[in-house]
């Protein structure tokens, strides 16, 4: 009998993943239906999850769009290599996010954010060193914002899959931010960032 209890206890242990997320239930939407206390039933379109999906998808697609623009316009090998990395990494992340959003029944945005469109336009008018510096400076800002967005959903999101996605991507985005800061430093003489 004690053996059976032990097995039951171990089984229970095994069903709680080490990376289980525990949000603050005080922040759940009043209408949230739950599969377990504080855990929303999958497929609901809660405000934080919906907002995260929208902002993350818009940000990711803008990265790809601006990366392509940079590949067309830049003659700087380091900048085009960075742009290629953005197209690849954010392209992959966008596909993962699309899958997660579909599984969760969360709507994906159909339009780019206004500031991203504006940035595309502004960069289109620049060439040479001016383009490189402006593109890389905008990449620093965009990745700073993405870091904030990922940190936000890690604590405030409700969909566990989206939170895991954010946790997985955070180190990569921080690395992109560091790469962008290094390039800005090389291109403009701005203070060099810490190395990590």
């Amino acid at each position: 009998m004690r053996f059976i209890t032990l097995i039951a206890a171990l089984t229970t242990l095994a069903t709680v993943p080490a990376s289980a997320q525990f949000g603050n239930p005080g922040g759940l939407d009043p209408g949230t239906r739950e599969s377990a206390p504080g855990v929303p039933i999958p497929g609901q379109t809660n405000v934080p999850d919906r907002l995260f999906t929208t902002l993350a998808a818009q940000g990711g697609m803008a990265e790809v769009d601006l990366g392509k623009l940079a590949q067309q316009k830049s003659r700087n090998d380091a900048v085009t290599a960075f742009a290629k990395r953005m197209i690849e990494d954010h392209g992959n992340a966008n596909e993962q996010l699309t899958q997660l959003a579909k599984q969760a029944g969360l709507p994906l945005p159909t339009e780019a954010a206004v500031d991203q469109v504006d940035m595309h336009h502004r960069l289109s008018t620049l060439n040479g060193a001016a383009f490189d510096a402006e593109y890389m400076r905008s990449q620093v800002t965009d990745h700073q914002k993405t870091v904030q967005l990922l940190l936000w959903v890690i604590a405030s999101g409700e969909n566990t899959d989206l939170q895991r996605f954010a946790s997985d991507k955070l180190p990569d985005v921080l690395h992109h931010l560091l790469m962008a800061q290094s390039l800005v430093s090389q291109l403009t003489g701005a203070a060099a960032p810490p190395t990590n």
């Binding site: 922040g27 939407d29 954010a113 206004v114 500031d115 914002k145």
Partner: peptide, 22 residues
């Protein structure tokens, strides 16, 4: 083309604690 807009700020509860909803 003259439009120079800023984007929406990031979610409001990044800095401020949200009010309880339940």
């Amino acid at each position: 083309f003259s439009l120079s807009a800023f984007c929406d700020p990031l979610p409001p509860d990044l800095t401020y604690r949200p009010l309880p909803t339940l």
